[in-house]
Amino acid sequence: MKNTIMKLNIKNTIGITAFLISQTMAAQFYVGVQSGIGNVKSDIKGTSAGHELGGAVKAGYIYSLSNHIGIGTGVEFSQYKQDVFLNNSSATLSNFEVDPSTSAFVYNVTASNYKERQTLHAIQIPLFIQYKTNINKGIDFSFRAGAKYFLPVNYKIKATASSVNGTAYYPDVNLTIDDLPEYGFGSQNNYSASGEYQTKGIVMSMFELGFTFDMGTKNALYAAMFLENGYGSIVDQDKDESYIGYNPTSASDRKANGLYSTDKNAKIRPVAFGLTLGWNFK
C-alpha cells in the first residue's frame, strides 16, 4: 500500500510540474547541477553519520513579475550517501519481539563494528521567489528563497558487522536464551545484509545566493551557493524495530532494518549545502 501511494505521489508531482511549465512558455528556463555536503540527519541517540558529497540535477523555469522579482519552480533529482555507525561499537540495543509461539521477549542485539551504508534518492519540487539586480554590464546578482517538496524514491541500506549476537530474555519466566540457533538466538560472524527504509515526503526550506553572467543575448551562466534544510521525518514506520531483525528459525540471515528503525518517532531529515552551477535560457 505504501509503495502504491508513493508511486501515485510521484506521478501527481511530475504531472503538476509539467502542467505549470506548459502554462508559462514565456518564462526563463534553466538547467543545472548541485554538488556539496549532503547529510541525512537523525536525533537517534548513540549513532553518528559521516558527511559525503551529494548532488542533484535540475531543470525549471522562472516567471518574471517585474525587472527584479520572479517566481520559479521545476523538478530535481537528488542523491545522498553516507555511512552510519554506533558511537559505542559494542553497544547492546534492545527491542520487544514475539516468537512463533506468540510469547513476548526482549531481543538484545550486540553487533561488533557495525556500519550501515545508506543511499537515498529523491525527487524535489521547488517553489521559490527570486530577487535579482544588475551590478555590472552582463552580471546580475540574485537571491532565491522558498520551499521544496522532498519525495524519496528509495532509501536503501547495506549493513555489515564483524559479528552479531542476538539473545532473548523472557521476563515472565526470568529466562535468558543466548545459544539456540535453530530458534534465532546466538552468534553470527561476518554479517552482511541489505534493506530499505519505508519513506514519506516532507517539506524543505531552500536558499540560494549567486550571480548570473551573460554568455550572449539568449544564454547566461549561473553560479550560486545553496542551503537546504528538511522539516519532519522522511522515514515512515508504525513501530520500533531492532536494527538487525529477529529470525525465528536461524541465528543467521537476519534482516537489516537499519539504525533509523529503532525509534518510530525519530526525526530523519535531509540537510545539504554547497554550490550550484546552471545555464539559463532567456
Rank of each mutant, 00 (worst) to 15 (best):
M1F: 10
K2W: 10
M6I: 14
L8S: 09
N9W: 07
K11M: 13
T13H: 03
T13Q: 10
I16L: 14
L20F: 15
Q23A: 11
M25S: 13
M25A: 11
A27R: 01
Q28C: 02
F29K: 12
Q34G: 12
G36F: 00
I37T: 14
N39F: 10
V40P: 07
K45G: 05
K45T: 11
G46I: 02
T47M: 04
A49L: 03
G54L: 00
G55M: 02
K58V: 06
Y61V: 11
H68V: 08
I69K: 09
I69M: 10
I71S: 06
Y80D: 05
N87S: 04
N88S: 08
S90C: 04
T92Y: 06
F96P: 01
V98F: 08
S101N: 13
T102G: 05
A104D: 08
V106M: 11
V109R: 02
T110E: 00
A111H: 04
A111K: 05
S112Y: 09
N113F: 01
Y114K: 06
K115P: 00
K115R: 13
E116W: 08
Q118V: 04
Q118P: 02
H121G: 10
Q124K: 15
I125Y: 13
P126D: 06
Y131M: 11
K132I: 05
K132Q: 15
N136Y: 13
K137T: 13
I139N: 01
I139D: 01
F141C: 09
F141M: 12
F143L: 15
F143E: 04
F143Y: 11
R144D: 14
R144L: 13
A147Y: 11
V153S: 07
N154S: 15
A159E: 13
A159S: 15
T160N: 14
T160S: 14
T160I: 14
A168R: 00
P171K: 07
P171M: 06
P171G: 06
N174E: 10
D179R: 05
L180C: 04
P181I: 02
Y183F: 10
G184E: 02
G184C: 06
G184Q: 03
S187Y: 00
S187Q: 09
S187F: 00
S187R: 04
N189D: 14
Y191V: 00
S192W: 00
A193V: 02
S194Q: 12
S194M: 05
Y197G: 06
Q198H: 13
T199H: 08
K200Y: 08
V203W: 12
M206D: 13
G210S: 08
T212K: 13
T217C: 05
T217I: 06
K218P: 00
A220M: 10
M225K: 03
M225N: 09
M225I: 14
E228F: 02
G232H: 09
I234L: 06
I234F: 07
V235Y: 05
V235G: 02
D236I: 06
Q237T: 14
D238G: 07
K239F: 07
N247T: 00
N247D: 03
S252G: 03
S252Y: 01
A256H: 02
G258N: 08
Y260W: 12
Y260T: 08
Y260K: 12
S261Y: 03
T262E: 12
T262L: 12
D263H: 05
I268Y: 09
R269M: 10
F273D: 06
G274V: 11
L275R: 01
G278E: 02
N280Q: 14
